[in-house]
Amino acid sequence: MSQMTLIDAIRAAMDEEMARDERVFLTGEDVGPRGGVFRASQGLYDKYGGTRVVDSPLAELSIVAVGIGAALADLRPICEIQFADFIHPAFNQIVNEAAKMYYRSNGEWRVPLVIRCPYGGGIAGGLYHSQSVEAFFTHCPGLKIVIPSTPEDAKGLLKSAVRDPNPVLFFEPKKGYRAIKGEVPEGEYFTPIGKARVAREGRDLSVFAYGMMAHYATIAAERVAEQEGIDVEVIDLRTLLPVDRESILASVQKTGKALIVYEDNRTMGYGAEVAALLADEGFEFLDAPVRRLTGPDVPGVPFNHGMQEFFMPNPDKIAEAIRELAGY
């Protein structure tokens, strides 16, 4: 085992996959000599050269579309969208093209494409460097949506994503790029797409979260265990699409209570689907209303620090929501 940050683990996954398979290449804005604005690809240009680490024009639509074309030609592109906030020009290519290609060609044409995309708030990014965009895409069958919260998962999931024959959106909680550190196994391993992870076992209440919020939920769970003796189970969803229904239902069957935490806007966010699943198939397990702790329904995360912190869920707010639900 070695200690890594989240972003080190992402870089290590790309490095391993590029070393293994000559079809794997990276493109996006500033991914070349600069190594990406977050340094996700630092050193890869020097190691693999400009043919495989390609600075794209400043145009997200075609970063994705060229990736789709290259994937159709059986390469294995990793496309970086610099911030999730900038993915919207590529929405048509992702939703109408990548997601539908296999279906519309009766299973003939595949799009083995990875779109890496830093997302999330709390980093003084304002409206356009803080967005959580996962809910737009989790509504879209044909895509796989992955969000890691630990270095171990980031590496294992990204390697699985590169080898997946389908388009995978790989959202990275950028606030955790260097803030989240953890052990990463030596040698090659894969984390399966489609399986949630029990981040902390518990009996009293289930918290469902992903990305930075899964990290925070684990901190909050330890705190309430220590302070109030509340035994929280934290499920790090890791894959949002396809939905891991079994893991969600199994946890609530055990605890009877569910809190869903996401930093996206509340309404129609990912938690709505988790809540609907529980209402539909987990109704008899429930001892309390399903609760959501989320960002508010406002157009964006404000730049002002106080307003930003007001917007963002954090360990304190999660601990408070846990206490409230535990006491129901």
Binding site: F25, T51, L61, S62, A65, V66, G67, I68, G69, A70, A71, L72, A73, D74, L75, P77, N92, Q93, N96, E97, K100, M101, R104, S105, E108, W109
Partner: peptide, 30 residues
């Protein structure tokens, strides 16, 4: 569309195929 002939499936929103064709050409050059 027909994969055996390297004819790629298209959609209805116009011009979506053009940057994908650039991607196919990119793969050739790559």
């Amino acid at each position: 569309s027909k994969k055996a002939l390297n004819v790629v499936s298209g959609s209805a929103p116009v011009a979506t195929q053009v940057p994908q064709a650039a991607g196919l050409a990119f793969a050739i050059k790559y």
